[in-house]
């Protein structure tokens, strides 16, 4: 269903106005973080109106400078980046072949459909159900407070997404191209690597980005398995809650640092978000 072109001008104005207001409501908190990050501690909770810099208060970059200068902040960005990149790569490395298998071969004992759904079902597992055993396992393996532990676990939790989304991408590719490759003497692996994979690359890249965002935002496992060394951005943020309480002027800076990458990803991967977040059930 496409929007009508011949709409009444009054209706057009009213609808547009409502849409603008709605978008503003959804944008406001992000704007508010930005505004708070520019305030002096004394102004944090006392600015009037909608906290517009220069109009309602005298903005300062002190919070940003202070925060970016801290070792912890840089360490948190570094850790979060490493963990999110490697968890995404690991999930893609495991998930893409499985997705290909589910799209291009027929399994007999358990049907392709049930296999796919089994992968999916991992996603609805409440993470808290595995938090305690993972804690004990990682303690046993001496992996508490390491990047590796968080990479392994995050990869596990985003793997189902990869399988399901990429499977759908492969299904949408014409199989004939791969068959042509067989004619040229390629084997299964060749057809996968040289034909299917390049064609699916844009979707795979978008999936990777979405997985990156998920891992970047993950908090429960990070706070459980890390204590001192492997501080990720969400833990760094919760760390502002030390014995001295939350310093919201710094918090706002950290919130901005935390939100900018995933929010950019949301814009970049727009086309794939619907499919990604509905596990391929709805196509965007």
């Amino acid at each position: 269903m496409k929007p009508k072109q011949n709409q009444h001008p009054l209706k057009y104005s009213i609808y547009s106005l409502i849409a603008v207001v709605a978008a503003m409501i959804f944008f406001f908190p992000i704007y508010w973080a930005f505004s708070t990050s520019l305030r002096n501690p004394l102004d944090t909770f006392t600015v009037s109106g909608f906290g517009i810099p220069f109009l309602n208060f005298e903005p300062t970059l002190t919070n940003w400078v202070d925060q970016l200068a801290t070792e912890e902040a840089r360490k948190a960005v570094y850790n979060s980046t490493v963990i999110a990149v490697f968890a995404s790569i690991l999930a893609l490395a495991l998930g893409i072949p499985a997705a290909y298998a589910l799209a291009r071969f027929r399994f007999k004992t358990i049907s392709n459909k049930d296999l796919t759904i089994w992968f999916l079902s991992q996603r609805v597992l409440p993470p808290v159900a595995t938090v305690v055993p993972f804690y004990l396992i990682m303690q046993f393996l001496n992996l508490l407070d390491t990047q590796l532990a968080l990479i392994l676990i995050n990869a596990t939790f985003v793997l189902p997404f990869v399988v399901v989304i990429v499977r759908q991408t492969f299904l949408d590719l014409p199989i004939e191209l791969e068959e042509a490759a067989f004619m040229d003497g390629a084997r299964n692996y060749g057809a996968f690597l040289r034909v299917a994979l390049p064609l699916a690359a844009p979707a795979i890249a978008a999936t990777g980005l979405i997985m990156f965002a998920f891992t970047w935002n993950e908090f429960l496992f990070a706070i459980t398995l890390s204590s001192k060394e492997v501080i990720t951005i969400p833990i760094h943020m919760a760390g502002a809650v030390d014995t001295r309480g939350v310093q919201f002027w710094f918090m706002a800076v950290r919130a901005m640092i935390a939100m900018i990458p995933p929010v950019l990803i949301a814009l970049l991967a727009q086309r794939y978000i619907v499919q990604g977040l509905t596990l391929g059930a709805v196509k965007g």
Binding site: P3, Y12, A19, A22, P29, P234, A255, L267, L277
Partner: peptide, 28 residues
């Protein structure tokens, strides 16, 4: 789904909350 002023821009703005770090959202 109607014709709107700056429709795709507004739609993009509406997307932003989806991936905002939930913990950051809580503090915000």
């Amino acid at each position: 789904n109607q014709r709107l002023w700056a429709r795709s821009f507004l739609r993009a703005v509406m997307l932003l909350p989806i991936f905002a770090t939930p913990l950051a959202v809580g503090y915000l």
